[in-house]
Design a protein around this nucleic acid. Structure first.
Length: 589
DNA sequence: GCCGTTTTCGGCCCGACTGTTTTCAGTCG
């Protein structure tokens, strides 16, 4: 069972408690949801955590859920879960994925109509709604029947599309809306918040905050946005739109003197806010988007904040960078004044993963621009060094001596570039495949022509975890192999990465002085942020690269930097923040 | 069911909006 499947099962248990008695089981419901979060957010497999007896170290997993999960892994089922879910027809659960369907609505419909097929339950309810059979049910009406039809139809459409956005796409969508909003005189300030401000790798919806003394006017302007599909909801301080692309935009408005608490609230994450409010509550303070409530002489008084800094400061915390607001001990660190000094875009001294159009007859795609063009862009970006890392010449189409000849020409080319450019150092690298047996795609004679190798997995992605780990470590153990590129191999919205013994890899990298890449490509962002944090904690160094195949890709560096920041990385953890001499010494070590 | 710089017992974030309601339930973030 994968972690994802286990988390889903725990959410179903929570939903079952909601159906049975939401009030009575209120805290069990929270506990199961929290446990599901924790399991989705860990990089280790539950099976392994049980084997090592450290499952209870996950936040939100206590003795009871721990023993349930042990039973699950051992026997494939949990008696207590079966008991809790008893009497709830299975078609209830798939409905929970449909927006606006919660456990109670799903249960009411499924049990009233005695639906039995979990695969067709959506279609079944759609048919019933279209026949007008739902409006007469208690608690439902004509309007909610129409809402059900729309929700199910939108869900059906959304399923064929990918439903989460990459960062550049989300920024573009948000920017368009921001410039529209700013046309209204009622808008004094407007910002993009939520997961976009936190720079999550994938963004579900777009959150916008506006400072204004005329909230009604702002909302009216917002819902008149010409590119909307429809208005989802509209109230006095918030509103939501569905765009024709299927993406949702949420708006919140507060007056300028309360904007600090709005920024804080709407940046999230939800878990960060929950933790923050618990922290505040233990100090007799109640937080919300309106400000901070405090009891004075028996009465609650709300204090307002213009800035986020003053909001955090009032509850005794340092300002927390948005990328860290994921309930990963950042509140404790802010309390102790031990927040990390995160790496910044301006700290980057060079980009080590660039594909030029040098005719290398590669195994995979060639770049579109010349080395000279990429050097110009690197100078413009203020870099002190860059590494050209084209793919190795294809193994099947070249003999080792042909490969040697190609790489010799590249060596000569790089030497000329270095003698012609005094303001930037050019490093002769190669993105070299680790073959299925762990061998590198070129031989030692050819490797001798290069300053170092960066190595990657591009084939046989389906290997089991043990074999894949052996393969990667073997490839990486070559003394000239220095950086492992896009280590998980994931492609966001397309495929999961391959599986690997991550702790073993981290220990290996630390011991033998190898680095892991943080690939900035928006559908890679690989290492993922949660693994960056674990690698960083282990003491592994990382390199943030763009994997550019054209000059205009080189500006994607900021996305890789955001992943590093979300993983709590400081400049000391990032190889390519080092000055050239220091870096090249590491590379040749 | 989990958790602890006031607690191993007694707490557990805070609010918006919609629809079916006449005071609230359900869903969402």
């Amino acid at each position: 069972m994968t972690n994802k499947e286990i988390a889903t099962l725990l959410r179903h248990v929570a939903a079952s408690y909601v159906i049975k008695d939401e009030k009575k089981f209120r805290f069990q419901i929270m506990a199961y949801q929290k446990a599901a979060d924790a399991i989705e957010n860990t990089t280790s497999e539950i099976k392994d955590l049980i084997k090592e007896n450290i499952l209870q170290d996950l936040p939100g997993i206590g003795p009871t859920i721990k023993s349930h999960l042990e039973e699950l892994i051992k026997t494939g089922r949990v008696k207590h879960f079966v008991f809790v879910m008893k009497g709830i027809p299975s078609p209830v659960y798939p409905l929970l994925d449909v927006p606006s369907f919660g456990p109670k609505k799903a249960f009411k419909l499924v049990s009233h109509f005695k639906l039995t097929n979990p695969t067709s339950v959506g279609e079944d309810i759609l048919t019933l709604a279209k026949k007008g059979e739902i409006a007469s049910l208690e608690g439902f009406g004509e309007k909610s029947q129409q809402d059900i039809i729309r929700a199910l139809e939108e869900f059906k459409k959304g399923k064929t599309k990918t439903n989460r956005m990459t960062l550049p796409y989300a920024w573009e969508t948000a920017d368009k809306l921001l410039s529209y909003l700013k046309k209204s005189s009622a808008v004094s300030r407007a910002y993009t918040l939520g997961s976009l401000r936190r720079m999550s790798s994938m963004v579900g919806d777009i959150d916008i905050a506006v400072a204004s003394d005329m909230p009604r006017k702002v909302i009216e302007h917002f819902v008149a946005y010409p590119y909307k599909e429809r208005v989802i909801e509209k109230g006095g301080t918030t509103a939501s739109l569905l765009l024709s692309s299927g993406k949702q935009i949420d708006l919140m408005v507060q007056p300028p003197n309360r904007f600090g608490s709005l920024l804080q609230h709407f940046t999230g994450s939800k878990n960060h806010n929950v933790r923050l409010r618990e922290y505040a509550l233990s100090r007799g303070l109640s937080l919300s988007e309106y400000g901070i409530k405090k009891k004075e002489k028996g009465k609650w008084v709300t204090k307002t904040f213009k800035t986020e800094e003053s909001f955090y400061s009032y509850i005794g915390l340092d300002w927390i960078p948005p990328e860290l607001r994921e309930d990963k001990e950042e509140i404790q660190a802010a309390h102790n004044h031990t927040l990390p000094h995160l790496v910044e875009h301006k700290d980057i001294q060079g980009d080590l993963h660039l594909h030029s159009n040098f005719l290398i007859e590669p195994s995979h795609d060639l770049g579109q621009n010349s080395m000279e063009e990429m050097i110009l862009e690197a100078l413009r970006l203020g870099y002190k060094y860059i590494g050209f890392s084209e793919h190795n010449p294809s193994v099947s189409k070249h003999t080792p001596s042909q490969t040697y000849e190609i790489l010799k020409r590249k060596r000569e080319k790089v030497d000329i570039l270095n003698s012609n450019n005094k303001n930037i150092r050019v490093i002769n690298l190669l993105e070299t495949d680790i073959l299925a047996n762990g061998d590198l795609a070129i031989d030692d004679k050819s490797i001798g022509l290069l300053d170092a190798l960066i190595v990657s997995i591009h084939s046989n992605l389906g290997m089991d975890r043990k074999s894949m780990t052996k393969r990667v470590l073997k490839g990486l153990s070559h003394p000239r192999a220095k950086i492992l590129c896009h280590p998980t191999g994931r492609l966001l919205n397309e495929r999961e990465g391959y599986s690997l013994e991550w702790n073993e890899l981290f220990e290996f990298c630390k011991k033998y002085g190898k680095a892991l890449e943080i690939n900035s490509w928006p559908t890679r962002l690989d290492l993922p942020d949660i693994m960056v944090k674990e690698a960083q904690r282990t003491g592994v160094v990382m390199a943030i690269n763009t994997d550019s195949h054209a000059v205009f890709h080189m500006k994607l560096m900021e996305y890789g930097v955001s992943v590093a920041r979300r993983g709590w990385a400081e400049t000391k953890d990032i190889l390519n923040t080092r000055p050239y001499q220091e870096f090249i010494q590491w590379l040749k070590d």
